[in-house]
Amino acid sequence: MPWLGGEGNNVMTHALLHPDFIPQWPLTTTPDGTTTEGMSAWGLPAINTAILLTSSWTLTIAHHALKENNRNALLNYTSITALLGIIFLVLQAVEYHHAYGEMGLTLGSGVYGSTFFMLTGFHGFHVTLGTIFLIVLSIRCSKGHFTDKHHFAFEAGAWYWHFVDVVWLFLFIFVYLV
């Protein structure tokens, strides 16, 4: 993209083809003139970051509870984590609605919109999967499927959730902050 603005060996690209183009990120005006707004990091996204971080923490508590054979805590904290996942998804839906409805930020509004929705969208899809895992895990916890020695499914689900969480941190930095 900076190349469209004449960086590197593309001076003439800028001069002849896109003289008015300003390369900046978020790209609010594309070379063909579609305009949009950048998504601010300090509204819902920040809240969502907090939610996911908390959820990782609650899941770790649940894991410890499992190892200590503390069934109540296990069930509670696993369900809380799943609930946080759901809240995250709801907030993301609100964010998308706002973007499409009020900001004119859509999949079609240039590379910024494209990357924004592809990255957060695929992440959201993984959160959805993770949340389903967590709900299933909660149900299985309540049925007493896991013991302190025998809980591979729980661990696998937890790994997955932490992985999704870490990815979000990167997204938060690269999609919203930069």
């Binding site: 190349w3 790209l27 594309t30 070379p31 063909d32 079609g108 240039g110 590379v111 494209s114 592809m118």
Partner: peptide, 17 residues
């Protein structure tokens, strides 16, 4: 997505390449 959902990853007009 470029073909059907209006993204412009590979289209200079939308800032892609």
């Amino acid at each position: 997505t470029d073909r059907h959902f209006g993204t412009s990853f590979f289209d200079a007009a939308g800032g892609g390449d």
